[in-house]
Structures are given as structure tokens and as C-alpha cells.
């Protein structure tokens, strides 16, 4: 629980012990068929949401992208398959709201040499599945991705799948947590400096 009315863009009170506990519990053992939602309308709604997210990132519309996440969000790319425990293991990335805004700030500074010139990306999203999670205002999503990244005169692919913890707030679905599982997350990666 966050303490008082602290702004998560400025200070990080919400990344506390119970936050980690919930996060780990949520991303354990969740994508079971028995929780799957087959309704094509609902599924298409989420597919659209993920496609829009991919477009915002491809177009570097970072403010629009940040607005797709809850205030107290997390963006987590584990450093080993299966996720591991971010409390006792290093992750490739583990950003709260402020650190995501840091990331965007850095990319917008003119001095992020790893992104000067910036990568051009085209993201492909597929295999979108929707799962029930607890209350009606919560869902878990799973999608596969290929990020085609053009940088330093080469096109390479970053490949993996994402898990999303979604919450409906005032009729809008927002991303509470995005777990990015690169299939080579436990190997050396050249210039991992774009937002995944």
C-alpha cells in the first residue's frame, strides 16, 4: 500500500515488500486453460490495446505509452527464463513508474549515445490470450512479440512473450504490470537500450 498521497513519478513508496509478494504470486502459474476467456469481442479488445501499445512504442510516443500504465505500475524483464525472484535476483530491467519516466527522459536527452541515432522498430504482436484473474476488473494477458530493430545498419529481432496484469479503472483497461520474457534473457544481448 502506498503511503499517503506520494506521487509515484517523484518518489517510490509503493515498491514495498507486499508489492513484490503480490507481483510474484500473480506471475506464477496463471496461464491455465481453465482461466482462459474465449469471448472474441473481449479478446479483440485486448488485441487492439496491445497493438496500440506496440504502435506507440514504435512511434516513440512515450507519453501516450506511459498513459497506458497505472500510476503504480511495473515493467519487468527477468534475467532468466521463468522469471525468478526480483527480490533476490538481478533483472534485465525492473522499472517502477519513476524509473520508466527516467528511461524516457534519458531517451529524450540528446546524450543517450546507445540511441543516437535512435533505433527504428516494427513490432509484431500475436498469440494474444486473455485469462481471468480474480475480480471482474482484472485480467491477465499473454502475447508473443517480435521486435524488428534497425540500428547500426542492421536489422535484428528481439523475440519473446509478455505477460500483462490488467486493471479496469473507470472503464479503461490499464497495465499494472508488464513482464517481458525475452527468449535469450539469460544470454549476452547487444545494446539492449530500447523500451521493450
Amino acid at each position: 500500500m502506498s503511503v499517503g498521497a506520494q506521487d509515484p513519478s517523484v518518489s517510490s513508496f509503493y515498491v514495498n515488500d507486499s508489492f513484490y509478494g503480490d507481483l510474484i504470486a500473480r506471475f506464477q502459474d496463471w496461464d491455465h486453460d481453465r482461466h482462459g476467456i474465449c469471448d472474441p469481442v473481449e479478446r479483440d479488445g485486448f488485441r487492439l490495446l496491445l497493438e496500440r501499445e506496440a504502435r506507440f512504442l514504435d512511434q516513440h510516443k512515450y507519453d501516450d505509452w506511459l498513459a497506458m500504465l497505472t500510476r503504480e505500475c511495473v515493467y519487468w524483464a527477468p534475467a532468466r527464463p521463468g522469471g525468478g525472484d526480483p527480490r533476490t535476483e538481478i533483472a534485465v530491467m525492473f522499472d517502477d513508474r519513476r524509473r520508466l519516466e527516467d528511461r524516457v527522459f534519458r531517451l529524450r536527452s540528446e546524450f543517450a549515445w546507445s540511441q543516437a541515432p535512435a533505433s527504428r522498430t516494427v513490432r509484431m504482436i500475436s498469440n494474444v490470450e486473455v485469462f481471468e484473474y480474480g475480480e471482474m476488473d482484472r485480467r491477465m494477458l499473454r502475447s508473443n512479440f517480435i521486435i524488428n530493430e534497425f540500428w547500426d545498419n542492421e536489422i535484428r529481432q528481439l523475440v519473446g512473450w509478455c505477460g500483462y496484469d490488467m486493471q479496469n479503472i473507470d472503464g479503461r483497461w490499464l497495465i499494472r504490470a508488464k513482464q517481458i520474457n525475452l527468449i535469450n534473457c539469460d544470454r549476452c544481448i547487444r545494446n539492449p537500450s530500447i523500451i521493450l
Binding site: 515498491v15 514495498n16 515488500d17 513484490y20 526480483p86 527480490r87 533476490t88 535476483e89 538481478i90 533483472a91 530491467m93 525492473f94 527516467d102 528511461r103 534519458r106 546524450f111 543517450a112 549515445w113 546507445s114 543516437a116 547487444r190 545494446n191 539492449p192 537500450s193
Partner: peptide, 24 residues
């Protein structure tokens, strides 16, 4: 637990936002 969790986060900072520029 809190020390180690925070220690993970302090360690991820420099590789993510510093080392990438050196490597470039």
C-alpha cells in the same frame, strides 16, 4: 529482504542507463 530487493534495483541502474552508452 528489503535490503536485497533494493540492492537489486540499485545494481540494475548503471547497466541500463550508463553502460549501454559506454558500449556504444
Amino acid at each position: 529482504g528489503t535490503i536485497n530487493a533494493l540492492r537489486m534495483r540499485t545494481q540494475e541502474g548503471f547497466p541500463n542507463f550508463g553502460e549501454v552508452d559506454d558500449l556504444a
